[in-house]
Design a protein around this nucleic acid. Structure first.
Lengths: 249, 249
DNA sequence: ACAAATTTGTTCGTATGTATG
DNA sequence: ACATACATACGAACAAATTTG
């Protein structure tokens, strides 16, 4: 294991390479060599500081580096883990969460966290091209890949078009399936706006990421075959685990 | 400053126009008049409530109005700021910084901050489809809109194909112009990968944004008419000022 | 690592004027 | 004339986030 292969405790000091860099490089080598598989837990900071004969701060600095580069993920009170590989999320007209994840040989899942009915207003009403005051269902959905949360999306659905949305989503947390149950076999994504932001405490918790890591923020409009908007989603992706990919043919 | 021009503390009360509306209107006038430039910080709620002689709640109600209309952005623990206009950055095959900004009736500019020659390696070599060790020019370019920095890009250019890149960029910091000078009239963007990250201190400084605000991180590959990669750029966008837009026709 | 200061966010309660039926 | 609802405005206290030392 790690302790055995890296206990050669003596790191060269004062030779121009900071200790934390050397430690980060060693840990990285272990990870890329596959000795530590994705999701595996690293030794505690205390254990590492003992093994390398350095202060815990030095270990933390190395971890920070690795976390910053997305190789490990540190969770307060739990430990440090080898980062899962990044989910690629193509943004094409036929963007489907489930299909896309399956295509990457991963296991998609989802959960509806909250649903509430509101009146359409402002920007959402405008994007959906409906009048203000029309009833909307707003579903908060957590999308997961290999059981790890990746995306938190607010889905705005016009209830006059999808009257059974609430019940259907209750039973099956797939937006696509809900559309299909309403007779909508095909839809496409028309526009996606992307920016980045810091998560709220709740968002960070749900996405299982630190408060200090950013989220990708997207606003997307889905349309039916006739070009009529059917859904507006505002989604937050754990940036450390997601890469949006735009291919232009 | 603000205090002087708006201290006429006495707002007409009981004349049919709510205090918070009057305050919102005044603040709006200051903003649209350009006395408060984009990104500038407004006085604190306490200061404003003192200046106008009203309760803090009344100020907050006015702020809420302005924030709702997107004129200001309020951040807990930090203050209220005049909203910067967001640059829309379409990610299509013909993505050109200069043209795009001009199309939004804004003034684009750019500056080459650093250039250095390196040997192609790892991922960059792979994306450019050249052998490792081939000479590359890496140009660090700061893209600005209306004189505000927006994007910081590392442009990786194969020197065997663009031997005069360095001199040309020195004279004119436009990548497109440099391509044209080498006889490349048209090129297109093939793929863009997008994620988000926190900036380093240097990046934050150059982008004139706080270290606690995220950047959009993109990796893009540009190709010539024959589909051969000609440039790989790794760019960081000030997320608060940028929206990447993907339209799918 | 910790504490202090600053600033916005939230939640009580109170009071007043206006429109409605 | 009265009751009710609603928006406006003020006050106090506390919570939460950020910055600074």
């Amino acid at each position: 294991m790690l302790e055995t292969s890296m206990t050669p405790a003596t790191l060269p000091r004062g030779e121009g390479v900071a200790l934390w860099r050397q430690i980060a490089a060693r840990l990285e080598a272990h990870i890329t060599a596959g000795e530590l598989v994705a999701g595996a837990r690293l030794p505690t900071e205390a254990a590492l500081s003992g093994a390398f004969g350095v202060n815990r701060h030095t270990i933390r600095r190395a971890m920070e580096e690795l976390a910053g580069r997305g190789l490990v993920r540190v969770e307060q009170g739990r430990g440090a883990f080898v980062a899962e590989d990044v989910v690629e999320y193509p943004l094409g007209s036929r963007t489907r969460f489930t299909e896309n994840i399956r295509a990457q040989a991963r296991e998609p899942s989802g959960r509806i966290l909250r649903m509430r009915e509101v009146e359409a207003e402002g920007r959402i009403a405008e994007l959906l091209r409906i009048r203000r005051g029309r009833p909307l269902l707003v579903a908060l959905r957590l999308g997961m890949v290999n059981r790890r949360p990746v995306v938190l999306g607010h889905h705005h659905l016009p209830l006059h078009r999808f009257p059974r949305a609430r019940a259907l989503l209750q039973a099956n947390p797939s937006i696509t399936a809900m559309f299909a149950e309403h007779g909508l076999q095909d839809y496409s994504r028309r526009i996606t706006r992307i920016t980045a932001a810091m998560p709220t405490a709740e968002e960070a918790g749900l996405l299982e990421q630190g408060r200090s890591r950013p989220v990708l923020l997207t606003e997307a409009v889905n349309i039916d075959a006739d070009g009529a908007p059917i859904e507006v989603s505002i989604a937050r992706y754990a940036a450390a685990r997601t890469q949006l990919v735009v291919e232009t043919p």
